[in-house]
Amino acid sequence: MSFTDYFVPCVILAILFFGLIAKTNVFDTFIEGAAQGLKTTADILPALICLMTCIGMFKASGGIDLLSGLVKPVTDFFGFPSEAAPLIFVRPLSGSGALAFYEEIINTYGPDSFIGQVASTVMGSSETTFYTLAVYFGAVKIKNTRHALPSALSADLTGWIAGAAAVRLLL
């Protein structure tokens, strides 16, 4: 047992406690939020169907193995498992695409394997960089984003390398 086993139950308890103190109707508010979650799931489903199907086809054709093999010299240098490399190509571009790749990796190698743990850490500590930049700057009509992209990508690169290192050191 580790402190992470305490994390989820304690967070739930703390939020409910806080809700009661603030005189929130915790049940009704929960239901309202959960209904919103239903909509979120429905929203991601069409994209997920598209991406999981084409990624499944790509994997079946041997494409993922080919891609992993191609980048292996580079990822080996950084101590990153090449099997999880497809994830880092897709992660900055598409959230649903990354989810589809992530599920594929966990399904193939298992959640507790080194590859599965690195994929989980990368997935949990990164964002859809290009998408976020496009939505944010697009919404406020900024054409010249200056150093936003290089800064964001340097952070992504750090996350991938550190992700593999963290699993080696911590788990």
Binding site: F30, G33, A35, G37, T41
Partner: peptide
């Protein structure tokens, strides 16, 4: 994933409203 997404949306809605 639907269960997880809904559950945490519900919990976080409490956090937000409170």
């Amino acid at each position: 994933l639907c269960g997880t997404i809904c559950f945490w949306s519900g919990i976080m809605n409490i956090a937000e409203n409170a």
